[in-house]
Every structure is written in C-alpha cells, then in structure tokens.
C-alpha cells in the first residue's frame, strides 16, 4: 500500500491524503459494523446503505480492493443475496486493517 502513489493519482500531497485516510478509517468503522450486523440479520436496506458508503469513500481514495468488494456486496444485497457477503466483508476488513497499520506507521 503506497500512500504517496495513491495521493499522486488523485493529485494530492501525501499529508493531505493521510488526513483523508484518517477520516476514512474513522467514519468507516461504524459502517463496517452496520454492514456486519445487516448481513447477519439479512437486512437488505441497511446492507445496501452501509456498503454504498464504504464503496464511495474507498473508491475516491483509490482503495480499489475495498471498492470492488463493497460494490459486490451492495449489488448482491440489492437482490437480497447475502451468500458470500460475510467472506467479502472479511476481505474488506483485512484490507482496512492494513490501511490502519500503514497509517499508524506514517504517524509515528
């Protein structure tokens, strides 16, 4: 995960990008939890909304893995399909944790 490259792709300085990633990490936590509980309960509306949020934020920052996965969850959930959603969410969390890790390293 190369922050300076991602920053350059969107035309930002790295420190500006780091600030946005912090915001992403901060705001996504609750949406990921909402997504988890929506998947567990099979709550279509909530799953679509939470996945949509994560998708949008990740997409704009260039976190393509998280973008693709949350997009898939959103589209499936729209059709009321939750099969594989938990696995996809776990994959999102792995990537999310990596981002948190890089962020911690950048800040130290």
């Amino acid at each position: 995960m190369n922050f300076s490259e991602l920053a350059e792709n969107i035309g930002l300085e790295e420190d500006e990008f780091v600030e946005l990633v912090e915001l992403f990490v901060e705001t996504s936590t609750s949406h990921l939890e909402r997504l988890q509980s929506a998947i567990d309960k099979g709550n279509t509306q909530q799953a679509v909304e939470a996945a949509h949020y994560v998708k949008g934020a990740a997409g704009n920052l260039g976190f393509t893995g998280i973008y693709d996965l949350s997009k898939a969850i959103e589209e499936k959930a729209r059709q009321n399909i939750f099969e594989g959603a938990s696995e996809a969410l776990k994959a999102i969390r792995d990537r999310y944790d990596q981002i948190v890790e890089v962020l911690r390293w950048k800040k130290s």
Partner: peptide, 13 residues
C-alpha cells in the same frame, strides 16, 4: 454529500 470522505476530498482539491 453524506460521505465526509468525499466532501473532504472535494473540498481539499
């Protein structure tokens, strides 16, 4: 935008 990340990104640029 309801997403604060999108808002901040647009605002910054």
């Amino acid at each position: 935008d309801d997403s604060s990340v999108s808002v901040s990104l647009l605002e910054t640029v």
